[in-house]
Amino acid sequence: MVRGRTLANRLLLTSALLALTVGCGFLGWMRQPRELRTNPPVLADLSRFRLMSNGIGGAPPESYFAEAEPYENDAYNLSQGKRLYTWFGCAACHGDGRGAAGPSFLDGWWLYGPEMVSIVASIRDGRPHGMPAFRDRMTIEQIWQLAGYVQTIGAYSAKVAATGRNDGPQTRPSENRAPAVMLFEEGPVGVNPDQGPSP
């Protein structure tokens, strides 16, 4: 009797451990790994997004969805984008995200829409009225990382993945705050006259 119970206990413990191991393995296999060197074919595909003829909106490459939209949902890529924001001098025109010579991101007003491809196209190809093209200065992956970060600055909905604050002066709400839509009672209606030139 006692022996039977010990055996049952052992079986219980073993199966619990086994379930834990298998569960962890499965979760680990499901999660997207942090890519420090992305697969070259996947990288090359990042340039093949399709833009609408007016330059606003479009479709990312199929492989982007196959990879579960890493530049929007992955904290590592977002934080890389944040570093690129500093390194490539975005702050010179866009300030800390509130805008200066260039438009603000923080207020949630998107001149070319909030889609990733629009932001990627803006960075890669430049835009009228002063936005330079970074095509020859950044790799396409860096452009996607930066675009993902810029999008979170003025995001409309909360995300699980977010960058942390910088070790610098804190001049505005951090990116992992409540989304930009909460800053506006009515939401965006028409073009904001303070936003600089319209498209």
Partner: peptide, 12 residues
């Protein structure tokens, strides 16, 4: 820190 801080250590 700062490598383990909010700026450089992404994720959880």
């Amino acid at each position: 820190v700062p490598l383990s801080g909010p700026q450089y250590a992404a994720g959880k």
